[in-house]
């Protein structure tokens, strides 16, 4: 049973990881937390639904197109709506993100509001049985895909020039500006990448969860919890935090009470922030008073 729960927890955690990581990418470059990110996740899933089910595009090209579309949306969002309110109070950003999320959800609701849409299963693999253990096709697909995506992401970061640039901006925006990096454009790109990665999470979960306009709402909180657990702003922390969250939800649900699954994320947030605010891998930022 323990192993079984771990596998399904990891498969959930993989989705949370994409969400948490995409939130972190934006946060690290812009110090903005995207409170509307759940709806970006939902939007990604809907775009891929439109392409596969309504226009008949095959899953893979549809997914790629949806991710590109969401990348562009993220880019436009940053250029058109975040840049103009720069310099205002910081919480203006939070509300702007929420408002855009609302617009996305509103559009989804007007078009599909009264139906729950099924997303065709991508790989209809039969589950693998190892003794008592069942590994489902969905779990293999999600864990596999996420592993590949994360490997690519961290490889780019560690091995390429782009990665070095990212490191430079993360170290100091002003420093990066001095050596000729266009930080504004960099931030736009971060929004684009964030939106695209969130969309990947949405596309992966949609065949499992069915599609509805409120799909994203719960992922936002899971993303927050994962970031908090892993250490706000830490990229690998977000991933590890997400996996831990996915697994602990399953354990709490099975060993304590199934009513706890829904609030595991909240309990983790409160507990971590009160006990170890910088999380597992975050840097302690000290403001001396």
């Amino acid at each position: 049973m323990l192993l079984q729960l771990t596998i399904s927890g990891l498969s959930q955690g993989a989705i949370y990881a994409l969400v948490a990581l995409s939130l972190t990418v934006v946060y690290r470059s812009t110090t903005i937390v995207n409170f509307g990110h759940g709806d970006f996740v939902m939007a990604g899933a809907f775009v891929s639904y439109v392409l596969t089910v309504m226009l008949g595009v095959a899953f893979l090209p549809a997914a790629v197109l949806a991710v590109i579309a969401m990348f562009l949306l993220g880019l436009c969002f940053s250029r058109g709506l975040i840049r103009p309110i720069r310099g205002g109070p910081h919480i203006g950003y939070a509300l702007m993100c929420i408002a855009v999320g609302y617009v996305l959800r509103g559009i989804a609701r007007i078009v599909w509001g009264r139906e729950v849409l099924p997303m065709p299963s991508v790989f209809d693999m039969p589950p693998v049985f190892i003794g008592n253990l069942v590994i489902t096709g969905d779990a293999m697909f999600i864990i596999g895909t996420t592993t590949v995506l994360l490997a690519i992401f961290f490889a780019i970061l560690a091995l390429t020039d782009i990665g070095k640039m990212v490191q430079a901006v993360y170290q100091s925006q002003r420093g990066a500006q001095l050596i000729g990096i266009n930080v504004d454009r960099f931030n736009d790109m971060a929004w684009g990448v964030g939106a695209a990665m969130g969309a990947m999470g949405g596309i992966l979960i949609a065949p499992v969860s069915l599609l509805h306009p409120d799909l994203g709402a719960s992922f936002l909180i899971k993303g927050f919890a994962a970031m908090t657990l892993g250490g706000f702003g830490s990229l690998h922390g977000a991933v590890i935090g997400a996996l831990l969250l996915g697994v602990s939800e399953q354990y709490a649900g099975a060993y304590i009470n199934s009513a706890l699954i829904d609030i595991t994320a909240y309990l983790i947030i409160v507990f971590v922030l009160l006990v170890r605010p910088h999380g597992l891998f975050g840097h302690k930022t000290v403001v001396k008073v």
Binding site: L81, M96, I98, A99, Y102, V103, I110, G113
Partner: peptide, 20 residues
Amino acid sequence: PGMEELFFGLIVIAVLLLLP
């Protein structure tokens, strides 16, 4: 009905941009 979320989002965006 059904348009509230959209209106709400758009109003907030408009105020943030035009009347910070």
